[in-house]
Structure formats: C-alpha cells, structure tokens
Amino acid sequence: MITLIMYLHHFQKPILLHGHERALTQIKYNRDGDLLFSCAKDQTPNVWYSLNGERLGTFNGHCGAVWCIDVDWQTKHLISGAADNSLRLWDVSNGSEIGNLAVRSAVRTCAFNYSANMAVYTTDSTYGFACEIHIIDVRNADESFSKTSSILRMQVEGAKVTSTIWGPLDKTIITGHDDGTITQWDTTTGRIMNTIKEHKNAINDIQKNSDGTMFITASKDCTAKLFDVEDLSLLKTYTTERPVNSAAVSPIFDHVVVGGGQEAMEVTTTSTKAGKFDARFFHLIFEEEFARVKGHFGPINSLAFHPDGKSFSSGGEDGFVRIQSFDQSYFDYKFDY
C-alpha cells in the first residue's frame, strides 16, 4: 500500500512571525500554549501570542547569538543562554532582566526542571574550556542570580553537549552530544548512569513527549529517533534524506513532526523546489511519512507542537517563525490497520 503524502499548506494559511533578523535557533510554547517564545542568532528573544501571532514583547540584553531558551511551567520566568557567555533570567510578565550569570564560554543549552526549582545549562568547549553541565538553584529570582554557584558541575569528556532535557521527576538529565551519543546523568550524584550511541552524527535537538516518558532526538545523520526516557531503549526511527534539526511528538495523536535541511552554508546549492525544507509528518508507530508542510525557504531549525496538538510552529534559518494550524483533513486522516 502506498501512503499518499498530503500537502497541508493548500488548506490553511500559516501565520508568519517576522521579528527576528537572523536564523532562528529555538522556539518553545509555554505550558498553556497561549505564548510562543523564540530566540535567534540576533540578540533578542521574542514572545508572541500563539493565537494571532502578535508580538507581546522582547527580552533585551544579550549581546550575542541566543542559542537556547526555556520557560518554567507557570510562565513566570524565562532563561536564555547565549554566545555572549551568559545565562540570563527574565521576568516574563514585564520582560525585565532579573539576573545575568556570567559563564566562561557560550551557553548552548538550558532547561528548567519539572518543579522549576532548578535549571540546567551546558557550556561549549571553546578557548581551552571544557564542555560542562551545571545545575543551579533558581528559586531566588533576584539580583543574587548573577552570583549563583552551581549545585552540581559535571565535566563532559568527549564531544560537547548540543541538547539537554530533564528526566522524569527531575532525577536524571539526558544530554545529546556532537558525536551522536546520548548520556543519562544522575542529578544527585552527577554520575553517568547510561550512555548509548544510536546516531551516527551530531544530535541537534531533544524533545520530550507530552507526558515525559519518551523523547525524540533529531540528528545530522538524517534521522529522528524515539527513545524511552528511563532505559534509553530505541523505540522508533524516522528516516529522511536531509540532516534533521528538530523533531517533536504530537500531544494528541501518534504523530511526530521532523524538520531540517542541509547546513546553512550549503543551502545555496539546492533549489527550494527540491522540497527539502518541508516539515514532515510521520506516524509515531509505523514510522511512515504521511504529510508535509512547505513554506520555509531555508532549513527548519526548531519545531514545536502547540500543547493542544491543533497547531505547530517552525522556526527557520530564513528568520521566520510559521504558526501552522491543522486543518480538518489532518484530523480526519487515519491509517488503515
């Protein structure tokens, strides 16, 4: 049986968010899904109403490419890490900077834990500094943030960390690395509990599913893979022809969305007609592709499902964020089995 691939863009017009001047690096919804946070290689993270795409505000202060952002579960605080060697804590309600933690090298990843009492950030291995994972306490959200010392510091041997998530009940941290390895760390001892290597090339993104029991990795080796969050067992593989930059699991269906494209420097050698910048939908269990969404004219760098599963957003190398609501044909589409 040949599954026909639907082109979803024929039906619903996406909302284009043009607030960034350079390539997007990460986009994230808050828990309620009313706000969408975005950061890019320009220096200003943005926050948008996800419903109509109006920009709510910006977070001004960084003076380097912003690599990562995360918002806590109550949408009170935002943290962002940047190439200006700083991790900053922001007040979401008014966009003001609460604190600025100076680090020795660029901050590549950051994440609040489940309770939002702690956060993790990782640093790049540059200028002779090794890649490190730091866990900090973020309960005191005031000026003292800039003097926060790490609760736990883990030195990373080998390839640097490119993405980080917290495991269930904040007991573990899972990191994806530049060489394709995935490492599970114990957050109380700082010891490595498990290391696997299922990817042949760098991991670009890791995202949890809605209940946090599985996570999906996006890798330069042209695949996205689904893993169990406890024992890191490989569950599913989604194969494309292009490096995958980001992947996300639908909160309501057994669907995953993957996006990517070749590296920025090679973009000009490919015609957009070749359709390699599409967001592609796979069935979570059958690993079969069933739909594509066109739009970006550069690789997709970050993807996120709306928490209600009725829309998704993509941030591209082209500087645009596109919010795409699903149309009825998406909800009607059923696999025969």
Partner: peptide, 23 residues
C-alpha cells in the same frame, strides 16, 4: 501492510501501557 501495522501497533501499545501505568 495492514498486518504489519497491526503487529507494530500491538507491540507498541503493550509497551506504552506499562509505561503509562508507571507514570
């Protein structure tokens, strides 16, 4: 294909049920 999918679905559901119980 349908048979293959049914099997995949069954295996995956088994695994998920266990995990959701724990969750």
């Amino acid at each position: 294909v349908v048979e293959k999918r049914q099997k995949l679905m069954k295996d995956f559901k088994e695994y998920r049920d266990k995990r959701i119980q724990e969750w």
